[in-house]
Amino acid sequence: MTATDTTTVVPKTLAPKTRGGVAQSVHDSLVIAKRNLIRMMRIPEIVVFGLIQPVMFVLLFSYVFGGSINVDGSSDPKAFREFLMAGIFTQTVTFATAGSSAGIAEDMTKGLIDRFRSLPMARGAVLTGRTIADLVQTALTMVVLVAVALLVGWRIHEGLPKALGAFGLMLLLGYAFTWIGALIGLSVRSPEAATSAGLIWLFPVTFVSNAFVPTAGMPGWLQTIADWNPFSATVQAGRVLFGNPGVSQSDAWPMQHPVWASLFWSLLIIVVFRTLAVRKYRSTTA
């Protein structure tokens, strides 16, 4: 071992003064996001299996249910497929959060978290970095999914800018849900438990909605829940902006103003759950 320093005076820390504030938060979050993205590249199975499920859903729903569900009074399977895609896209961004729950729970069991907590870094960065990296992964999944959707006959009818807007809303909702997933991951202490805990809440959220069937056929009370479900607002916004059939005619405010409703819900979820998750992270002793 070669000596790097032969002085005998008390060493001075090489660490610069912490900047604090938003600039440091952003910097630290990006450092952590980079770490998670590198991990993602080194564990390609995660990305691959993250892709298989939504693609399978597209194919299963399209060909199994297509033809038996009426969309705008038509039983044409093509119409159902066009109707379905906004639902599947939105479901895909939300289901990706289960991975965040598991990933964070796993991180919390490792000694690495102690290292992070002993560094002069921004408090929320470990979680924010993870949510950013997960968002990137979700975006990649969406690209592949859109290609599959186009193959089975889905089209956009209102122009590219509006379609991109729709994808933006979906990813924003996915990002918001990631914070719920993060909170779950921090609350459940084992990665195994987090995998299922991070998944089960997504079933009622995505199924009691307008995603897969028109809500008109649901009992009144269930339809009310579905109409006010943040998830439904984003699906509705997708259908409107893509120009796809099956737009809900419900009088509920979120169904009438889906774009605003989607934005509102997502931002509200981010504010509430980010606060809770960061607080939980700070109080948790790994």
Partner: peptide, 9 residues
């Protein structure tokens, strides 16, 4: 490198 950057170097 990551640790260095998180020490704000």
């Amino acid at each position: 490198q990551m640790v260095g950057e998180l020490y704000q170097m």
